[in-house]
Amino acid sequence: MTVFTHHPTPTAASTTRHGLRLVAAGAQLWRVIDRAGRIVGHVRADGEPDALRFHALRYSTRVRRFFEVGRFWSLDDAVSCLHYAR
């Protein structure tokens, strides 16, 4: 489960299940990092505070852009998607 200090956005030190942690990368963007320090992907929040959607994103070095892996109503689901899509 994701740890929040202020709902609905996590802090830079938020931790998640699967041994992944979130690091702030922008106003509504977090980098998802594994235990070894490797970047697994990014999660971007979009929408109104009472109806946020979380977009799981992966970067492709081949084409040099982000691809959306999925859209979710919870941050945990977006992070889980990145974990299992490795």
Rank of each mutant, 00 (worst) to 15 (best):
V63W: 14
A13P: 12
V63F: 15
H42W: 13
L22R: 01
A24K: 13
V23R: 10
W73N: 12
L22N: 01
G41W: 06
L57H: 05
G41F: 00
S14W: 07
T61S: 11
D34G: 01
V3H: 13
R17T: 11
T9R: 12
A25E: 07
L57Y: 11
G37H: 04
E48P: 06
C81N: 08
S60P: 03
A27F: 12
L57P: 05
T9S: 06
R62L: 13
W30K: 02
T5Q: 15
F72R: 02
V3G: 05
E68S: 04
V23N: 10
I39Y: 08
A24L: 11
D34M: 02
Y59G: 00
I33R: 11
M1W: 08
F72Y: 09
G70T: 03
T2I: 14
G37S: 04
L75K: 01
V43T: 02
A25D: 08
G47K: 00
H42I: 03
G41S: 03
A78S: 02
W30I: 06
R86N: 15
A24E: 12
H7C: 10
E48H: 15
G70A: 00
G70W: 01
P8M: 01
D77K: 05
H55M: 09
V23P: 07
E48K: 13
D76F: 04
V32W: 03
L22F: 01
A45S: 09
C81D: 10
L20H: 00
V69Q: 09
T5N: 11
G41Y: 06
R62K: 12
T5C: 11
L22K: 02
L22P: 01
Y59V: 03
V63H: 15
R38S: 15
R58Y: 06
L20E: 01
F66S: 09
P49F: 03
L29P: 03
L20Q: 04
H55L: 12
V43L: 02
E68L: 07
Y84H: 15
R65I: 05
W73E: 10
W30F: 04
H18S: 07
R86H: 09
H55T: 05
V23H: 10
G19P: 00
E48I: 10
V63K: 15
A51S: 03
V23F: 11
R21E: 04
H42S: 06
V63T: 15
A13L: 14
A85C: 11
G70E: 01
F66D: 05
